[in-house]
Computed example of a mutant assay.
Amino acid sequence: MFKVVVALMLWSAPLFAAEPLVLRYPQLAEVSDQRSEYPLALLRLALDKMAIKAELQPTSQTLSKSRAIALLQQEREVDIVWTMTSKEKEASLLPVRIPLMKGLGAYRALLIRQGNQELFSEELPVKRFKQRILAQGHDWVDTQILRQHRFSVQAASDYPTLFQMLDKGRVDAVPRAVTEIIPELSRYQQQGAALEVEQHWLLHYPGAVYFFVAPSQATLAALIEQGLEKAIADGSFDLLFVQHFAEDIQQLKLNERHLLELENPLLPAATPLERKELWYKLEPKRYTELNLDPIQK
């Protein structure tokens, strides 16, 4: 099947080359929000590897994750999204199965209020940890996974509300991807929020952030996939990853933390876990594996 798609891709390449390919992606709520910088840089890299001229445009309005996915399914206003994969998403959208963050986006450190480190002491029993109130987006895969493991999770209606809930003391922590938490901390501290990164704990569930396109866009998906594969092969993928995240990884001292490893029942079987070169590997100081209750599976 892949060879057929590649053949179609090569046949269609002149169509893309005739004029810039316009790809619309979901606009974020705040100009200072840096979460799109790396995915867009990686998308440009993949298209450059395929000699595709492209114009990447944010949507005219900010979109929630669920709204962006719905519009992509309908092929309206949005041409591409990047998000944590799940069985449900892969059933309705076409994934490019290259983990953009090398799986690092599925490692979650905690953003907490300043002075509340004692709530998450190094000796905190996991049972007590699960009683701490966490905030996550109402339409996030992460929310489903944490709840299925019986963590206490408050759902936020949108992204900025997560940090407002934390700053006002309505929740104890906001688990954030280790690829995002440092710039988020800086941004909200500049806005006056008294927040800090928790020092001892790290959550992980196997997962991948992919580019997704509409099911009818198999040629586009194949172009992006081959471009990413070329970037992996020549080292430019890893170079871009290091440029964006190496400093944050070092600052967070990830290997010195207590890792809670959670099952991910939403992970599709086609996830390329066997391709070791696609994943970032951590070696935590302490490790606790949490399995789903049989009722939750």
Rank of each mutant, 00 (worst) to 15 (best):
179 T>K: 03
98 I>P: 10
128 R>Y: 11
105 G>M: 05
200 H>F: 12
177 A>G: 15
63 L>F: 07
193 A>K: 15
184 E>K: 09
71 L>C: 02
152 S>V: 10
144 Q>E: 14
168 K>N: 13
133 I>P: 06
128 R>A: 13
68 A>N: 07
101 M>I: 06
189 Q>K: 09
83 T>N: 11
69 I>Q: 14
138 H>Q: 14
128 R>T: 06
59 T>M: 07
77 E>T: 06
112 I>F: 03
77 E>W: 07
170 R>Y: 12
177 A>S: 15
146 L>Q: 04
79 D>E: 12
132 R>S: 01
128 R>M: 13
90 E>Q: 04
196 E>L: 01
77 E>C: 07
115 G>Q: 05
84 M>W: 07
130 K>C: 01
148 Q>Y: 01
136 Q>I: 01
165 M>L: 13
172 D>P: 02
191 Q>E: 06
151 F>W: 01
192 G>P: 10
110 L>M: 10
115 G>H: 08
109 A>S: 14
132 R>M: 00
74 Q>D: 14
164 Q>C: 04
178 V>L: 00
145 I>N: 04
69 I>N: 11
199 Q>D: 12
113 R>E: 10
63 L>Y: 09
96 V>N: 02
197 V>H: 01
163 F>Y: 13
102 K>S: 05
166 L>E: 00
124 L>Y: 02
61 Q>G: 13
71 L>P: 10
154 Q>F: 15
132 R>E: 00
86 S>A: 04
158 D>Y: 12
75 E>C: 09
158 D>S: 12
67 R>S: 08
160 P>C: 01
173 A>H: 02
148 Q>S: 07
125 P>R: 04
157 S>W: 09
141 V>S: 03
170 R>K: 07
94 L>Q: 02
195 L>H: 09
147 R>W: 07
75 E>V: 10
170 R>V: 05
84 M>H: 12
154 Q>C: 12
195 L>F: 08
136 Q>V: 02
156 A>P: 05
200 H>K: 11
105 G>W: 10
111 L>N: 00
70 A>E: 13
115 G>K: 08
142 D>N: 08
155 A>T: 08
155 A>R: 12
104 L>K: 12
198 E>A: 04
176 R>M: 12
189 Q>L: 05
124 L>W: 03
162 L>K: 02
167 D>L: 04
155 A>Y: 07
75 E>I: 13
99 P>G: 03
172 D>W: 00
160 P>Y: 05
85 T>A: 02
114 Q>S: 12
120 F>D: 00
110 L>T: 00
63 L>Q: 06
99 P>T: 08
166 L>S: 03
167 D>A: 13
74 Q>M: 13
